[in-house]
Design a binder for these strands. Structure first.
Lengths: 249, 249
DNA sequence: CTAATTTCATTTGTCAGACATTTAAAAGTC
DNA sequence: GACTTTTAAATGTCTGACAAATGAAATTAG
């Protein structure tokens, strides 16, 4: 393990990169203990503070966990699907909020990803999945449900949809994406009161999945996408009318 | 900004979380400067070293960047698609290598995601996209191309495919996923010498896209998926024969 | 001899203070 | 007015210290 001692980047960043490469490449395996901070400081010929900053960088990426005490230290962490998903939600949320991603772009991506799951979900759907979907539909049909709960149920419905594909890699990818897009979606469903249409389309999707008809399910998703985009368009128009946009500079 | 001063988690982790929430929630906007380390240390009533460890955690997640000098400090970072993709590649690569994800599962997810792009790519494909696809096909058909270059070209082909959908959100999601799966794919394509079949299928996809025929393109992708899985199966069988598996414990 | 207790060594978490380095603004000089 | 020097602010790094957690070894009581 060596580091380039004459770079413009910070020492702690370079040390972090060296250790990260060792982990990603597999040179350090899961649950293996890294040398103690004092040893690492000795190895890299830097102070312990610098080593600690490097280790904190790795910890922030869920690459290591640290334990205190006699047999403590930094250990290569077993990255679970949950950890990975949480990280992706953070990253994706920021990405969407910082890059002026239009609602249509996000919506299009979301439904394209969900459609990708349908053939698998139709083939593998199990009673448990269908029951979850039905439960969320029932919840969404509750008249006195507040907006926050309705949107949460919407997320749960779509997560159950992708989980139905029975592929953890897909679930991890899409659950993160869908969750990250939720703030954008909320802006629409909060203002639009017509939940009946959404619930009906959800029911159609469920019916098609129950019948293992992926094509029909895709059609219903298409309509849901079109309806969502239409809602967003109307919301936008209403807002523009209330507060006219500035002229282009 | 307050922190819970009686938790089992480390102080630097809690401070990082507080700042992270402020950024993700939008309380701190892009390019806004955070208070200096000394000020933060004062605010949170901790030492500067602790503040620095917290900031390094945020830096590792690309949430902030730091600049030295008189007007330097920590600034909320504009997260680009490239940064987000790089992070996702790291996370996904580790996830796949640590969770005993089977080749079939990864392969299935990958092709499902790519199929999701096809309708959009067929509708929006532009000469530039088609040219990139053709260029990679030509490269793959070069007889004396080494394995590494062939695989790299394979990745480039599939990235161009998803970029053809013209949706940056999809591109970011899928490019990361595909790149992360590359090590798994390499294990197959390195051992199997029959590149001609792959090149032919790539050509078929390109032809279908050129004709804006999403259905046909999906069919070719299906065959490519089946072929890839079949290759993997044969590689696995050959390996098992050479070195018989241990009996289950 | 066994079991409970104490001591001890190791390691991470935190702190305080210091110095080096970078950078832009302010002050000074011609 | 243009150029140079100084200065102040900020991050990057180092050193040394202490606190807290924790498992192992030594000790002691029964």
């Amino acid at each position: 393990m060596k580091i380039d001692r004459s770079q413009p980047t910070a020492l702690s960043a370079r040390i972090a990169k060296t250790l990260r490469d060792a982990i990603v490449s597999g040179a350090l395996v899961v649950d293996q203990r890294l040398p103690s901070e004092a040893e690492l400081a000795d190895t890299f010929a830097v102070s312990r503070a610098t080593i600690r900053e490097a280790l904190k960088r790795l910890a922030a990426q869920s690459l290591i966990r640290t334990e205190r005490g006699a047999l403590g230290g930094a250990f290569v962490r077993h990255l679970s699907y949950e950890d990975a998903r949480a990280q992706m939600v953070t990253t994706s949320t920021l990405l969407l909020s910082m890059n002026e991603v239009g609602f249509n772009t996000a919506c299009e991506a979301r439904f394209a990803l969900e459609r990708a799951c349908l053939p698998l979900a139709a083939a593998r759907r199990e009673p448990a999945h269908l029951a979850v979907l039905q439960r969320e539909i029932n919840r969404q049909a509750t008249p006195d449900l507040d907006d926050v709960a309705f949107c949460a149920s919407d997320v749960a419905f779509h997560r159950a949809l992708v989980d139905g594909a029975g592929n953890p890699v897909l679930s991890y990818q899409l659950a993160g994406a869908i969750e990250a897009m939720q703030p954008l979606m909320n802006m629409v469903t909060f203002t639009a009161r017509s939940r009946a249409e959404i619930v009906a389309l959800h029911s159609d999707v469920l019916t098609a999945l129950t019948a293992r008809d992926a094509t029909a399910a895709a059609g219903h998703l298409d309509r849901l996408e079109a309806y969502t985009k239409d809602l967003a368009e109307r919301v936008r128009t209403a807002r523009d009318k209330a507060k006219p946009p500035r002229v282009a500079s």
